[in-house]
Design a protein around this nucleic acid. Structure first.
Lengths: 226, 226
DNA sequence: CGACATATTGATATCCATCAAACCGGGTGG
DNA sequence: CCACCCGGTTTGATGGATATCAATATGTCG
């Protein structure tokens, strides 16, 4: 269906460790790079899992859809993150570029071949899968039992840790994306953000609603509930 | 904190394959059995992950708690299921016996030692972790985006597949357990079950509300939404 | 049988969704 | 450079699904 490796791809020879995977023997495997425009599907749910990806620049959302269009985003992937490692023949999510995004990719099969003989790589795959699981498990608690305030606070806290450089975080995703990650509507997300702003917990920077500073991490954390 | 291996434990020598794990060399590792009464904690969140468990008889709930008591059950484990495989030093959930439950257990460390040299075992660990992840991913969609009817239908569908023997399924868990699995209240679960009963989709058997027959799988599936 | 846990059902409240309008910022083209 | 458009956001008014509170019914276990 989706041929994501098109004409302008730039194949490179590289090492697994550049992909964030340490290897005992550190063999050379082929890596390539590709850039997707904003909104482009990188792979679709149930498509054969041919590649594993690492975000080089930009952001990716990974989601499931119900037949009537309801969407649940399972995770956002930011620079450095690896995604698409489904340990199976097909992808269980759709992956889409949130903004213009450059990824590096590696053939799943080549990774598996190495893993079969290299215990270090094999352990790495298990480790990555485990951290995906851990993230999903925490998200279950959020989706099943937390209030809208707690959800938004948790999201901001997560993003603050992951992409805040120098006091300001620039959210690549829309309110709708955030809502679909948190199991809310975009209006509810917007209202809670406004509340937090009025409460002096955060503020917008300059003239955009995507650039946010956390003014009071202490108080933000107090909305978290653990 | 919790010493779950007490006096009456029955250590046995056994093979990994009896634990549902195939191994290339199939070495002998020690397995023991233990029985927990209804409601007993098997291990607590953040406790060191010393053992991996397999349900022999009974049922287990695995959950996280918020400080104010809100509970999210991540999974139920039924006979044959393996749980407690957290691939890390500590457990990320609390595990509790839903009813009187017998488990077999294996030292995590011994499993890891084998996995380090046996690629087949190693792949098995990855496979189990992946299926946990897959279950969690589907549950994210349910918790984030499905209606109470869809949730209860999905639960009944899951249980029908997993523990229905000969037309009748006997649910070991209470309405509260089901609610905490589905991110609902026990009253809402009860109401939806009543609806489904009035609609002729299911019925109670004999004189209990825990023994259920699905009368119309077709119609149950129509509540599922995919 | 009695007592306690669990389940059902009803009445009401609450949080969040939905519907709707206005606003804002960025880009485009006259 | 301004006017307009368009995607995204905010804010308001209202509704609805599910939570909460409460009473009754059912089931279980000593």
């Amino acid at each position: 269906m989706f041929v994501h490796i098109t004409t302008d791809r730039t194949p490179r020879l590289n090492s697994l460790s550049d992909f964030g995977i340490t290897s005992g023997s550190n063999p050379i495997v082929s890596l390539s790079e590709f850039t997707y425009p904003k909104g482009k599907v990188i792979y679709g749910e149930k498509e054969p899992a041919e590649y594993v990806y690492q975000v080089k620049a930009g952001a990716v959302r990974r989601y499931k859809l119900l037949s009537d269009g309801r969407r649940q985003i399972g995770a956002f992937h930011l620079p450095g993150d690896i995604f698409g490692l489904d340990n199976g023949e097909t992808h269980r999510f759709t992956a889409e570029a949130v903004v213009k995004t450059t990824v590096r990719l590696i053939k799943r099969q080549s990774l598996e071949v190495v893993a079969d003989s290299d215990m270090v790589v094999s352990r790495n795959l298990l480790g990555m899968t485990t951290s995906n699981l851990q993230h999903a498990e925490n998200h279950l608690l959020l989706l099943g039992r937390k209030s809208s305030q707690e959800r938004v606070a948790a999201f901001l806290h997560e993003m603050d840790e992951r992409l805040s450089s120098a006091e300001v975080m620039s959210l690549p995703m829309t309110r709708r994306d955030i809502a679909d990650y948190l199991g809310l509507t975009l209006e509810t997300v917007s209202r809670v953000v406004s509340q937090l702003r009025k409460a002096g917990v955060l503020d917008f920077i300059g003239n955009t609603q995507r650039e946010i500073t956390i003014l009071d991490r202490q108080r933000l954390a107090s909305f978290l509930q653990s």
